[in-house]
Design a protein around this nucleic acid. Sequence first.
DNA 1: AAGTAGTTGCAACTAAGTTGCAAGAAAAAC
DNA 2: GTTTTTCTTGCAACTTAGTTGCAACTACTT
Lengths: 157, 157
Amino acid sequence: MKQKTMHKNFLQKAEDLLTSCQLRKTHPRLEILRALLQTNCPLTQEQIAERIGSRSPDKTTIYRTLMTLMQHNLVHQAYLKGRARYFEPAGRCRADQCHPHFTCTSCGKTHCFYDAEIPAVRNIPAGFLVRHSQLRLEGLCANCQNDSACQPDPDNS
Amino acid sequence: MKQKTMHKNFLQKAEDLLTSCQLRKTHPRLEILRALLQTNCPLTQEQIAERIGSRSPDKTTIYRTLMTLMQHNLVHQAYLKGRARYFEPAGRCRADQCHPHFTCTSCGKTHCFYDAEIPAVRNIPAGFLVRHSQLRLEGLCANCQNDSACQPDPDNS
DNA sequence: AAGTAGTTGCAACTAAGTTGCAAGAAAAAC
DNA sequence: GTTTTTCTTGCAACTTAGTTGCAACTACTT
């Protein structure tokens, strides 16, 4: 029940976001935005499709929708490790800096540190105008610190 | 002449690095490491091959060598741009933080800010152990600020 | 209810990176 | 200095992530 309410709210939020940008409220857009709003970590195209499930739009549509949403600043790309692109709602960051992303080197899970604060970088070379920054953190999450089986960082798995 | 001396030095440095990790000093490894040490910006596999020229190892070898060098902490992945991964020598960063990378949103060029300092992040959630950090900056480089033709950020080109 | 402009799905494609394996080369053993 | 061992390389084939062209479709307009 609570679950249902939550979903209703995310869908409503997705509609509102599309309206605010004068974008058409199509099924794929609503589902993709909702999937992103529902989780609290960045997702790849594939993860978005998985979460939407059997009624998921084609991957082409997902990519194109993400590009559209990025152009309208509703979504942005989070830079994590590896070669896949991760996306998340843009509303959870300040205009000039994204919240930091923490990836555990042992279990591989990524967490968003919404409340962490990045003090301004010092010694930016002259002439450069910095507009936006994104910080990527690596280390061990609470689980992997406690679980001794995780300690000796297995090759990658 | 000076050029030659420089190259000699980079080759020597490459040998020393391989020795320090007890890795075999093979031709591909020496060339790849030298190519990375010679430039002051991160390179893709393709750029490494270009710089080595006609005697460049196969791309498979370049990728495998980069993985080996990463495992031994001689090289690391700087960032992901487009679909490509960029690599750089690990020696130009502190153990706990990599130097920031600045990408101009207008011309697309990326610069390393070796002397910039990332102050410690505040409000890291309890339980997380941060071991390493990497900062990505975006904005306008000196050229693109002056050149009015660059100002209205062309779609991507 | 019909028109229109923006959106979608499919198939085919490209770029970046990976895998398996036989041949080759460093270093160790003789 | 030759042989042996072990690690490394190159090639071909493959996978993954993302892109393009285009005809069919649908949200919004009138």
